[in-house]
Amino acid sequence: MKTSDLISALVQDPVPAPRLGRVLLAGLAGGVLLAALTFALALRPRPDLGEALEQLRVLAKFALGLGLATAATGLLGRLARPGVPGGGWRWSFLLPGLCVLVAVAAELVAVPPGAWEARLFGKNAAVCAPLILLISAGPLLCLLAALRHGAPTRPGLAGAVAGVAAGGIAATLYALHCPDDSPLFVAAWYSLAIGADALAGFLIGRRWLRW
């Protein structure tokens, strides 16, 4: 077939595709909804949520989840488009990371070394990461599906960032439930779960986001 013949065919296909920004937003909204649904089915908010939210270290839990989710979704909007640089969004991950580091440092100073281990494992160490992963499955799928509408030139990276976004959303919800507030606990198990999400997103994205 000659290239001019192909062009004639392409010109006859004006099916307007929905705008990419809207599709990504829809993916995000659907993902948050699914995550909230999973949370509602599997867990309950902690009974003392109101008082807990007055503590700085509890807010740090939300800073990690919300911060990562925001940074990752912002970066996704750029990774989904060919030829668009990551820009300032690449550095936006530093903020939630820094929050957690500061919180960990404060905890290490405030708590005697003998109690570190108890703080690190808390009550829920064994279920924390699995539950975050469970809640993140919905948003991860939604975000990846939305990304397929885009054209990420680095499919693995885009998938991994979608994983961080999904993990961040899930961690935020999980933080409503979990009474383990020590930054040591959060830095270890939340990060483990979000890291696993990133890996899953990378592995799926590398294949599924190719175009």
Partner: peptide, 18 residues
Amino acid sequence: KRHTWDPDRPIGPWLAAI
């Protein structure tokens, strides 16, 4: 993938990346 070009951005980098 023509909908992935943002009309507010230059078209060259988009074209080159694809």
